[in-house]
Each structure stands twice: as structure tokens, then as C-alpha cells.
């Protein structure tokens, strides 16, 4: 797993490439914890290059989403590959997360 982070405007963007699972969660969790501590934190997790997510990875994203909500911020995910989207759909996490087809649409929503 590789993670890349950048900031566009005031949106923190995280890109995760490869397997996002129990073994690779710690650096992502640490980064999310840091950026979601700020008031009105806005975070976008780009999963375009993510090939697999397990339940620990999903729990990490859910935890970050809840922390964002607590500080009146927002967290979105975008660009999910088919197998990853299927996991979100199967577990109905599509009801909890705002999921966008690409980064552009996600940024539009986060900046509106």
C-alpha cells in the first residue's frame, strides 16, 4: 500500500494505492486522525488505486467520518473501483458515506 497526501484549497486529499487492510491501516489512521482534528475539517479519500479494503480499513474511514462530523466538517470518498464499491454497497456503507465518481465532483461538493 502507498499513500499520498496533498491539499487542494482547504480540502485534505488522501490517495491510497494497493491493499488497504489491517496491515496497512496504521499510517492512514494516523494521518486521518491528524487532519480531522481541525474545526470544519474537509477530507477527500481517493480510492482510485485501491484494490482491496477490509473491515479494519472501513472502520478507519468510518471513524474519520464521525470525527469530521463532530467538528462540523465533512469526509467524502471518490473513484472507487468495482470490487471496492461492491464492499461499500454490500455493507450499506454507501448510506453512510458521500461517494463520488471522481475527484472533481467530490471537490465541488466539499467546496459548496
Amino acid at each position: 500500500m502507498e499513500m499520498k497526501t496533498r491539499v487542494v484549497g482547504d480540502v485534505h486529499i488522501l490517495e491510497i494505492a494497493g491493499r488497504f487492510d489491517t496491515n496497512t491501516v496504521p499510517p492512514v489512521a494516523a494521518w486521518l486522525e491528524q487532519v480531522t482534528a481541525a474545526p470544519k475539517a474537509r477530507v477527500l479519500v481517493n480510492l482510485a488505486e485501491t484494490t482491496f479494503v477490509d473491515s479494519t480499513a472501513l472502520a478507519t474511514l468510518v471513524q474519520a467520518l464521525k470525527r469530521c462530523q463532530q467538528v462540523q466538517g465533512d469526509l467524502c470518498v471518490c473513484s472507487l473501483r468495482r470490487p471496492v464499491y461492491m464492499i461499500f454497497e454490500l455493507t450499506r456503507l454507501d448510506k453512510a458515506f458521500n461517494i463520488f465518481v471522481d475527484e472533481e465532483h467530490a471537490l465541488q461538493s466539499l467546496n459548496s
Binding site: V62, E89, R92, L93, A96
Partner: peptide, 13 residues
Amino acid sequence: QLLRADSTAIGIL
């Protein structure tokens, strides 16, 4: 056939 969940997991919402 695969049965999809009808709500999110306990503790999410």
C-alpha cells in the same frame, strides 16, 4: 444469490 444488507453495521449511524 447474495443477500445484500439492508442497513449499515451497528455503530455507524
